[in-house]
Design a protein around this nucleic acid. Structure first.
Lengths: 333, 333
DNA sequence: TTGTAAGCGTTATCAG
DNA sequence: CTGATAACGCTTACAA
């Protein structure tokens, strides 16, 4: 292939080079079986020779499909989010979709703008990755004609296609595993927002506690590192739970650090369990027990599901649940 | 604004609603000053009433500008990469650019494809974020007619616009700071690839060592967590450096953990310094001394620089150097 | 200040 | 199996 890379060659150039009409060139690109092998060869050669690449934009306009999906996330620097993005992008590449990345910074106005933008951009589908789904988001999504897949969240009534783990069961099981070991004073450390996934996590936790006639005890913290450490440091000065189940690994590590700095022995005085088995859990000392879930796969499967919607493939299950399991490490006994 | 959101309204609809020609509608969108306030008002109302949003694709085709940039990264799950992406995206939003995210997974064939794809997609600019820039990449970039900004890397001869810190000086200073404290056995822990940024880091380190008549000692490891820990565990069993300067925080944390598990006291027996001051450095125990650089800003400034190229604004400095400084924490004395 | 009309580079519907 | 030709929804001369 010669290096015509930067001199925009159009479908006309290819057509005249191959001595066919532009329609034929378009056909070999989109329906190769509809053109005679001999001419197909000729066209392919011309394409190769000229280094032709169809203009994605023109193609999008004419076909009314952009082969583009929007990936809407709250913040890419969260370890779990980043890993899911990797999953989404890998599969998107496999199916030849371009992905537009939009980050909301969890700000409502930005998010509203983003929804407008992605519609204007004619995206063929949307992956909404956000474990803090709110009422207004659901409404937004339900109004939409473009297919949307929720990634890492589940809408309570399964009104929207989604891929996630079974949060309620995961936290139920985690809590129960400590109860079965005879623990009574089990704390759930959640984040501020009491929406969707958080609600499910709390539900699972409470269920296990109530079944054992234990008093649920939930505290909420911010997701921010600089806030968490002092928060836990203060909290642990006066509170001595036996067990803490924490909704995010990074937050759990802050708690470990605060505890250690206070001379609280982990896991002897306090057992800590994190969630999502990110890099942090392996890097902390003691290593962090964590509820493992297939983060990369959650992203990947979301994107795969979305392709099915975009291509009108049959879909057997709109709400995919992926497996989870507890990885016991040194922050627990 | 009524909720016409999903019934595609075109510029024609607005035109007839406002009783003007489509050209006028287009003008109020692109050159509002060129249309009489009264009619402008009328058009704006119509736009509002119908909930019109110009079709980005059609606009792109007609104007031959996509207001889209490609952000090419090796892997989004690296903490520093993720933070830079945040920077890029925030500024892109500010200047109304859409960003397409492409990840190479550091695989050459994927990367080649990606370059083709982004040209076909008619992107207006490219941010290439990769601290392992190679010869072939530079060649690729130099051939390109679309503006490219290197993010977090510098091309040796400053042939390509870039935003980064002064790697050589940073590592020179870091090394020297230990030499000044009387240390002699100072190890540099680099990654495998000996390209660009790595070369600069090693250069700075070597310069400081040689000025002090000390023998440089460089080891190279992979970037992968599962590999690093055993690697360091083995290494530290037989080698006892006084100081280790490590090119990535996450790798430094693995080293800290291996050392601790071997009973090596940090910082008394071994001082460790990381690089980039990511979340890891605050979360590790002991906390990690690190060369701080403005990761978010590197992304943000890259994107800003790119907008200047795309809009033909005057550019005073094509190779922006951002400041760095050493944050001393508990992994050093 | 506004309207007319010619593209932009494809896809898709017809005939042939 | 192939070729004309009309969209696709907008921007942008050029005219009025």
């Amino acid at each position: 292939m010669d290096d015509y890379k930067n001199t925009k060659v159009t479908i006309y150039d290819v057509a005249s080079e191959a001595d066919v009409s532009l329609a034929t060139v378009s056909r070999v690109l989109n329906y190769p079986e509809k053109v005679k092998p001999a001419t197909r060869e000729r066209v392919l050669e011309a394409i190769n020779k000229l280094g032709y690449r169809p203009n994605t934009i023109a193609r999008g306009l004419a076909s009314r499909k952009s082969t583009t999906v929007a990936l809407i996330v709250p913040d890419v620097s969260r370890a779990s989010v980043a890993e899911m993005i990797n999953g989404v992008i890998d599969i998107a590449r496999k199916y030849d979709y371009t992905v537009i990345l939009k980050v909301t910074n969890s700000e409502i106005e930005i998010e509203d703008d983003i929804w407008q933008e992605v519609f204007a951009a004619q995206v063929d589908g949307i992956i909404y990755l956000n474990d803090e789904l709110q009422e207004r988001n659901i409404k937004q999504i339900l109004e939409t004609t473009v297919p949307v897949v929720l990634c890492n969240v589940q809408e309570e009534n399964n009104l929207v296609p989604s891929v996630s783990i079974d949060y309620e069961t995961a936290f139920y099981e985690a809590t129960k595993s400590f109860i079965d070991k005879g623990k009574k004073d089990i704390l759930l450390v959640a984040t501020r927002s009491a929406y969707s996934v958080n609600a499910l996590r709390e539900k699972g936790y409470k269920k296990a506690m109530q079944e054992a006639n234990l008093e649920p005890n939930i505290i909420r913290t911010s997701g921010r590192l600089v806030i968490n450490y002092p928060f836990f440091y203060d909290y642990l000065k006066t509170n001595k739970p036996e067990v803490a189940i924490v909704v995010r690994d990074s937050i759990a590590v802050s708690m470990i650090n605060a505890a250690c700095d206070l001379g609280i022995k982990i896991p002897d005085d306090l057992e800590i369990m994190g969630f999502q088995n990110t890099k942090y859990s392996k890097m902390s000392r003691p290593t962090l027990t964590s509820i493992d879930n297939p983060i990369y796969d959650i992203g990947a499967v979301s994107m795969r599901l979305l392709t099915k919607f975009m291509n009108n493939e049959p879909i057997d299950n709109e709400n995919v649940i992926l497996p989870h399991n507890i990885l016991w490490r040194n922050s627990t006994k």
